[in-house]
Amino acid sequence: MSAYSAEQFQSETPQLYPRLRRAVTAYLAGSDVDPDDILQETFLKAIRNLDGFRGQAGIYSWLYSIARNLCIDEFRKQQNRSMITSVPVEEFELASDQFADEAEREEILILRKAIAVLPVMFRDVVIMKAIEQMSYEEIADITGVNIQTLKNRMFRARKMLAESLKKMGVDEP
């Protein structure tokens, strides 16, 4: 018996979807995989396996781990085509009316590019910690990696990000 009913799942979809979409979009930044395809598959997989959800972690963490596994599968499929992004910064999608000024837009584009060029292992932890604001305990539950290792990974990921930003012309203070 699941700790969560299908009706609950359906009614909470409007809250779960935008948050998950943000994470999946970050995960897939620079790849040609459509985040909406991954999201659709995630929700489908979740409802088919809802009986397996025991509720130890929240429904979002459970859903996130399904989406993450699907993204990793996609990355594996595309490995032969080189997952390191070759998408130029200018081609990262951004609706221009979202931003107050061009400088802000440019900073976001560069940040996206810097995240996209991180190796998957490091991108993973940056998305969960910095973007999703998950605790290290939650990340450890999802990834099965211990907290100390995650913190060291996050430190290295941040260093890589800083180096990428420097290469892309973002000045150090």
């Binding site: 359906q10 943000r22 999201l39 940040l111 930003l165």
Partner: peptide
């Protein structure tokens, strides 16, 4: 360093009554 979270803004409001959400709900 700039916060990586700035790269992907929280745009939950733009998904209010979004057809993609309705589609997912129907699919579920």
């Amino acid at each position: 360093m700039p916060n990586p979270a700035n790269a992907f803004s929280d745009d939950s409001d733009t998904f209010r009554d979004d057809r993609r959400i309705r589609h997912i709900q129907a699919m579920v």
